[in-house]
Design a protein around this nucleic acid. Structure first.
Length: 424
RNA sequence: AGAGAGGUGGCAGAGUGGUCGAAUGCGACGGAUUCGAAAUCCGUUAUACCGGCAACGGUAUCGGGGGUUCGAAUCCCCCCCUCUCUGCCA
């Protein structure tokens, strides 16, 4: 969430940033926030001084009681009763004002970095670079949803039976490939300096708010109403929330964590022709990398993370491209997002396999994630994360791009992890 | 799930209605001492908000929320969590 001080001191820049993100009611919301904040301060000041007087009276009453002057104490108690009413009224309004302020702040998305291109939709994203040659497939090449049947490695029908659409069952070499990819990604992350964590995949409400999934994307998460817990849509949520309410020692920065988790997405109403097979699932596996950095370092670290992810794709020998998302297409909480897409040769389209973002202080502000600056004051840190990588579309591209009459060739990097070098 | 105990500052741990943001110990930081270090001694050591250029002052916070009271870490109610025993279980 944005800081009120920023809205106050850089109102025009905030409005420009919100416009770039195509946020509709920017002027009205910013105006409302500034007014609510002013009222909040006023109430706080009045409340505090009334409370100070009440505290002082309580002290006096105490010593009067001790010296046995009951009558004197009674006189002071009358004034105390008045003050009590006042502070109660102030406190009640303060609660309301703070709630309204909070709700309005929650509605505002993060401001885009200056390098974010203008634009409304995916068509306006900037292609930063394209790496690797797209394979030329034979005329009878199959899309991955045919290949998985041919080699009997992923079974959607079985998933339908036991759970529902979008929950595939991985079998035989398909299951082993999943395990191999997870291990490969985790080992690569560790070699790049990320500490491995294995977090819970159910999180509480506070964690959902901390990273910004709540209240914005309530409907996209599976919710266990009985215990009020959410199935995570990404490991970003538990891993980043590990540091909620922390003042991190500067010598620990940048914090680097990597973790494998299953991820769950309801994605209501988004099923259609281009989401066949592995293209979009309700449950999928992902290794996520997270960094928490000093504000001065976050963009350097974002590039480092991007480099790590590109390294993975290169080792997997997949042609890919890097996109810088435009203001209209990027996420609610992000200041700058790179998407990485692999070429899925039989489908003839790019598939997003990673999203790598800098959230600057947007999440840190909600998380109360800080460090101590040189001057002794606490300051918000920057949070970043990236998929490294999401499995299903990687599998789709591996299957399609590497199909041969003799089976599916796997990249060298995976041979030892899989224990086989081709499928089929 | 049942019975009991308990949740206090970075950690340990006192405090059962009044000047308690909170003793004491440990740790950490600064200083003295030392060629340097250990030991010792002195001092500092929470967070947020409000006011103030600042120094500083005020308010709140002893798991969370509500209540009683002039006054709550301390009393009452609800919730959460932890520990021990019993049960169940990968």
């Amino acid at each position: 969430m944005l800081q009120v001080s920023v809205l106050k001191e850089h109102t025009d820049a905030v409005l420009a940033g919100l416009a770039k993100k195509h946020y509709k009611t920017a002027e009205a919301d910013v105006q409302a926030i500034l007014e609510l904040d002013q009222r909040r301060r006023q109430l706080q000041t009045e409340h505090d001084s009334a409370q100070a007087e009440a505290n002082e009276l309580a002290r006096q009453i105490g010593s009067l009681m001790k010296s046995g002057d009951k009558a004197g104490a009674e006189v002071l108690k009358q004034r105390t009763a008045e003050l009590k009413q006042q502070t109660k009224a102030h406190a009640d309004e303060l609660t309301q004002v703070e709630f309204a302020l909070q709700q309005t702040l929650y509605k505002l998305p993060n401001l885009p970095h200056s390098s974010v291109p203008e634009g409304r939709s995916a068509q306006d994203n900037e292609v930063v670079r394209e790496v690797g040659a797209q394979p030329q497939l034979a005329a009878d090449a199959l899309p991955h949803w045919e290949l998985i049947k041919k080699y009997d490695i992923i079974d959607f029908e079985l998933g339908n039976k036991i759970t529902g659409a979008g929950f595939p069952v991985y079998k035989k070499q398909g299951a082993r490939l999943q395990r191999a990819l997870i291990n490969f990604f985790l080992d690569e992350a560790r070699n790049a300096g990320y500490d491995e964590v294995q977090p819970p995949i159910l999180v509480n409400e506070a964690s959902g708010y901390g990273t910004g999934q709540l209240p914005d994307k309530e409907g996209q998460m599976y919710h266990d109403a009985q215990d009020n817990l959410y199935l995570i849509p990404t490991a970003e949520v538990p891993i980043t929330n590990l540091y909620r309410d922390e003042i991190v020692a500067t010598e620990r920065l940048p914090v680097r964590n990597a973790g494998y988790t299953p991820c769950f997405r309801r994605e209501a109403g988004s099923w259609g022709a281009d989401v066949r097979g592995l293209n979009r699932l309700h449950q999928f596996d992902k290794v996520e990398i997270v960094q928490i950095t000093h504000p001065d370092q976050s963009y350097t670290q974002l590039e480092e993370m991007l480099g790590h992810i590109e390294g993975l794709l290169q080792k997997l020998e997949l042609p890919y491209r890097v996109l810088r998302l435009c203001g209209g297409d990027m996420g609610f909480t992000s200041a700058l997002t790179y998407d990485l897409e692999v070429w899925s040769a039989a489908q003839g389209r790019w598939l997003e396999v990673s999203s790598c973002s800098n959230f600057e202080t947007y999440q840190a502000n909600r998380l109360k994630l800080r460090y101590r600056a040189e001057n002794g004051k606490t300051q918000l840190l920057h949070t970043l994360n990236g998929s490294a990588l999401a499995l299903p579309r990687i599998v789709a591209a591996l299957l399609e791009n590497n199909q041969t009459p003799e089976g599916i060739r796997l990249p060298q990097a995976l041979h030892s992890y899989c224990g086989f070098d081709k499928i089929g």
